[in-house]
């Protein structure tokens, strides 16, 4: 098993050399880091490597929680709404609420109308 892992690692390195042993491209991670703010000057070589693994964990957790939402909805297809529900239900994902909410309100005109009605009711 350990040997098989070695083979698959080497093979994948050859097939998609840009990622090497990491499942996400380090150059892309570095670019996103650079664009996260004007203040980011230099990035050590190890930081994108840490992010490569961190994003694995993040994607896995977000996927797991979203899938739970899909199952509760008796569905087998993961939708954007499942991601939004998972984000809303999880404290550490609070920073994503704006992102998934904007997507929802943009995609669904009805949501905006409902909000407007509520606003009228309050006034």
């Amino acid at each position: 098993m350990r040997q098989a892992g070695a083979y698959s690692g080497l093979l994948c390195g050859g097939v998609s050399g840009r990622t090497g042993p990491h499942s996400l491209p380090l150059a892309r991670i570095k670019k996103i880091m650079k664009n996260s703010g004007e203040g980011v000057k230099m990035i050590s070589g190890e930081a994108p490597i840490i992010f490569s693994k961190a994003c694995d964990l993040f994607i896995e957790e977000l996927t797991r929680r979203s899938w739970i939402m899909a199952i509760q909805g008796k569905r087998r297809t993961l939708h954007k709404e499942d991601l939004a529900s998972a984000v809303i239900a999880t404290d550490i994902f609070d920073f994503l609420i704006t992102l998934v909410s904007n997507s929802d309100s943009h995609a669904v005109g009805g949501a905006t109308n409902v909000m407007e009605v509520e606003t009228i009711d309050y006034s």
Partner: peptide, 17 residues
Amino acid sequence: AKETIQECVSEYISFIT
């Protein structure tokens, strides 16, 4: 969902960075 999670990952990297 694919597009949304792509955006979430980039936001995560920016947030932590």
